[in-house]
Design a protein around this nucleic acid. Sequence first.
RNA 1: GCUCGCGUAGCCCAACGGCAGAGGCACCAGUCUCAGAAGCUGGUCAGUGGAGGUUCGAAUCCUCCCCCGAGCACCA
Length: 888
Amino acid sequence: MLFSPLDSVPLGTPFFSTDPRLNTTTRKYEFRQIEARWQQQWDRTALFRAGGRPGKPKFYALVMFPYPSGTLHVGHGRNYIIGDALARFKMMKGFDVLTPMGWDAFGLPAENAAIEAARSEGQAVHPREYTLRNIRVMKKQIHAWGVGYDWEREIASCHPGYYKWTQWLFLKLLENKLAYRKMAPVNWCPACQTVLANEQVEDDGTCERCSSAVVSKNLEQWYFRITKYADRLLDDLDGLEEWPERVTVMQEAWIGRTEGADIVFRMETGEERIKVFTTRADTLFGVTFVVVAPEHPLVAKCAAKMSDAEKKKLTEFVAKCRAQKSIQRTAAGDKEGVSLGVNVIHPLTGKPVPLWAADYALMDFGTGAVMGVPAHDQRDFLFAKKYGFPIKVVIAPKGGALDAATMEKAYEDEGVQVNSDEFDNLPNNFGRAKITEALEDRELGGPTITYRLRDWLISRQRYWGAPIPVIYCANCGVVPVPESELPVILPDTSDFKPKGQSPLAAVESFVKTICPVCEDPARRETDTMDTFVDSAWYFLRYISPRSEDKVFVADDVNHWMPVDQYIGGAEHATKHLIYSRFITKFLYDIELANIEEPFSRLFAQGLICADAHKCPEHGWVPETEVKDGKHACGQPVLTELHKMSKSKRNGMAPEPLIEQYGADTVRLYTLFIGPPERDAVWATKDIIGSHRFLYRVWDTVQEALPRIQGAPSKPESLQGLADEFRAVRRKVHQTIKKVTEEIEGGFKFNTAVAAVMELVNEMKRADFQTGGPAAAAVLREACEITTLLLAPFVPHMAEELWEMLGKPPSIFEQAWPTFDAAACVEEEIEIPVQVNGKLRTRVKVSAGVSDDQLREAALADPRVVEELAGRTPRNVIVVSKRLVNIVV
RNA sequence: GCUCGCGUAGCCCAACGGCAGAGGCACCAGUCUCAGAAGCUGGUCAGUGGAGGUUCGAAUCCUCCCCCGAGCACCA
């Protein structure tokens, strides 16, 4: 820093006398001093401490806590600045605001950094050190932005005082049969030697971290039974009216509830039965084949009975599909299959149909088996055409018939049942229920519901996470660690390299333990929990962050919850936000909290983007290494717009900007950049506009100070006041209205800031030197209101100006201004006059004009008379106080 | 392929169905000149992606199409 903050100046000491009458010099806008001073002042007075305003309504403002990845860029800042502006606004609105911050501090990057350091420097940096170092840096950055939190409630998910309760939560889920172990196929990265979450696998089936192909592996893992909550998670979306629709739509798709029917086909030989899932039971009589997913257990059983040649063909096909699975099976393209060499029996006709394995049947949807109805399902149609299965029409379109021989695609719409025995002539929507009933009667199927939502795989073969608190005992099986022994402390180690199991497995002192039940030697679980478990309940821990004997204090949770406003990125729509809803519902069910939904309002802010440069040789390179479209190495770079990120190396550091322009300018620009829910492009050159505006505000108030001494904060009467001052007064109240509505109506800070800019322009237009005492009062009011309205956006400057206006700090203890509706009303208005919809002139009329008066004024206007040229208007449309349109 | 969102000046963005322009950047002119990559004052610039429709009147509502973005996608 070029300037050292005022470390040596006693806190709270003003640079100049707080009595502006004693100031003979005009002060410069020294933003560095001002910002340092007020940041210290807020810390000292604990401005953001929650609970200090008993009797006031509560407001829980929450910003998604960050992963401590290193340093923050200006794109991250948007999130915190929006949250901070809201928190400060709500304080001024008289709420007792809770605005906490913490760290999503477990996770793979810290571990990888340790491994990388060990590789390149021969010495591993412990993930804890790495994480704590990053937290220190980021906390300082947040502070420098002027963003305030109730830091006394700070939490870090890697702290034993926190993860003790993450483990406790696991035990509660286990106790309620919502945590369980099962063997299942999982994503495995051979290079990273670990299981990956679905979201860590790229669309092309590669590992997001190392780009090697992810394989499917059967492993026994821990799961949370979130599917048990599928219906509630889906149904309760209806109550989340204050959530962005795109997020609820994504959750709906993610849960993927589908109503349909299970239908059982017996094998022609043997006892095996095969269950298919369908939403079109009405087409059952059109089945000409049945296919199962290549991974279906029946495939192996059938293979066992096949000839070697057939078996080889089948095995190769299955292997091919498995490989494809990770590269994503081609969407809607060619369909392939292999016969399983057996027939199954149609449950209603008793006729045999062939059973095949096909790539378009997915093991993880429905039952992994599909009945093939080529006439009425496009995929089945393509498959039947390719392999020569018959096409049987069973639904006739209204007023028409289908010819199986000449059909070019499946008929998937509604119609009437045909070729369906006793169900003929029924409308198919009715037939569907009838056929399902018939199946149920014969115990060969019935109505059912499937979900796309899978149980949540929470175990990870990683070091840097909360250890799963269970013990394996040869006598007693899986034994939960007793609550009294929590937390299960994550032991230190120096080797974080993954070897196919958690590095914890190599820590003998950790693994070896005693069974809490029989006291025989036993071993601990060595997997750790998915970090999404940590973040699924952190908003509750903020409420009782230091509680040692309880996960949280129920009364306090019931006071502060739900979160009134949650702010974060939309990328968490189907993960963190669903997990948090699930955990909250669980805690409700075990009667620990009385809320079923954690976040009553959600705001998903847009991302900040910037140019990213890719060198063909060096990959993504920072802008500092690019000149004239070429990388420092001489190669031409490819420049694309991407969201700011570490990986694309296009993040803009806030420090140089804060140093040059001040935190208030950076904040103002960030809020002004565009509609907050939309993505925006960071343009450093545009910052100057926000900077200039702040100087203009500063100048305006400075100039006003000598003139507003002793003036009241509000003019007592506007009697005899010149128009220019009346205009300012009007603008002041219109701006209060506008800014308040823009913030409350959806965080439209961009237009709120623009409104204040208009106000300042209006103030500059009036020459207050010529006005009397009433004008001075108008000016004082304008200065005070401008300062108050800007306070949430540029808090440091606002505090300083507030003090200079002779007011006691803090401005955030001050009530948000209210507007005087009468003062907003224009006295004289200009009304546009159209002839046949085209603008011809304007007429000036008094604001209280009646429709008749307005009509007369318009018709009397010389321009209108000329335009009409003696014609009689056919119609005159008068929009009260807004417009006149004369139709001839 | 399906769903949603967006498209306004050289650029970023405003505009209850009623004068297309609030604000900012850039540009031009004038002015002042060390408070800010200078400041200040004033100014130039589009007819709203395209085609239809509803209406006295459409950037705004409806239909179709185009572009960009996001989400979902062999979901039976």
